[in-house]
Computed example of a mutant assay.
Amino acid sequence: MATLYQLHSTMDRLRHSTEEMALTWRAGDSIILLGATVAFIEWLHAYLSDSDIEGIAGIYALADDVAQLSNNTTAKLNLNAKLTGVLTDDDWVTMTQDPQFDKVVTIAL
C-alpha cells in the first residue's frame, strides 16, 4: 500500500513541508502539488534530493493550478518533463479514492 501526499506549500515553507513528508515517506508513495506549489517544482526537486525521500511513484499537479501560470513560466519550468501527469479535479478525486493508496495525507504548512 502507498500514501498519496497532497502538498500545498508556499515557497518559504516548502523545505519544512518536504521535511515533514520525509518523516513518514515510503518508496512507492506519490505527491500531488496543490495551488501555487507547482510553480516551485525546481525547489521541490532540490529539497527531495536533500531528503530521505526515494522511490517516488509519481508527482502530479492540478490542471487548474498549472493554468494559473503564464505560458512563459510553464515553458521555463518544463513541467512536462517534471510531472508524471496533470490532473483534472475529477481525476484528483478519483486518485484519492484509488485502493492503491491506503491513506491520503495533506501537508499544508
Rank of each mutant, 00 (worst) to 15 (best):
I53Q: 04
A61F: 06
A2W: 00
S30Y: 03
D102E: 13
T37S: 15
Q68K: 13
M21S: 02
F40Y: 14
W92M: 04
E19G: 11
T3C: 03
T74Y: 14
S30L: 02
Y60L: 03
S70H: 07
L23D: 10
S9I: 00
M1L: 07
S49P: 00
M21Y: 06
V66L: 10
A81Q: 08
L33S: 05
G28M: 05
K103I: 08
D52K: 00
D98A: 13
F101P: 08
S9Y: 03
L87D: 11
I56W: 00
I31S: 01
L77R: 00
Q100L: 12
K103A: 11
L77A: 06
D91A: 09
L62T: 05
W92A: 09
Y47E: 15
A46T: 05
Q68W: 13
D91P: 00
M1K: 07
V104L: 03
T73F: 13
R13W: 14
V38G: 03
S30R: 03
Q6M: 14
S17V: 11
E19F: 12
L79A: 11
Q100K: 11
E20D: 13
M21P: 04
I56Q: 02
L62W: 03
L23G: 06
V105L: 04
L87E: 07
R13S: 15
L48G: 06
A108E: 05
N71S: 13
T37D: 10
L23A: 09
V104E: 04
T3L: 08
A61I: 02
A61S: 11
T18C: 14
I59K: 02
T3R: 05
D89N: 12
D50V: 05
D64R: 08
M1G: 11
V66H: 06
M21D: 04
A39L: 09
G55T: 08
Q97A: 14
A2H: 01
N72G: 14
G85P: 07
H45F: 15
D90I: 12
T84W: 03
T73N: 10
L109T: 11
A67I: 01
R26W: 08
L33D: 07
A67Y: 04
L87A: 08
V86M: 14
K103L: 06
W43P: 00
D90K: 00
S17K: 05
A75M: 10
T24K: 05
F40E: 13
A81H: 07
L87S: 12
E20P: 00
D89H: 14
S70I: 04
N78P: 02
S9F: 03
E20H: 04
T24N: 04
E42A: 09
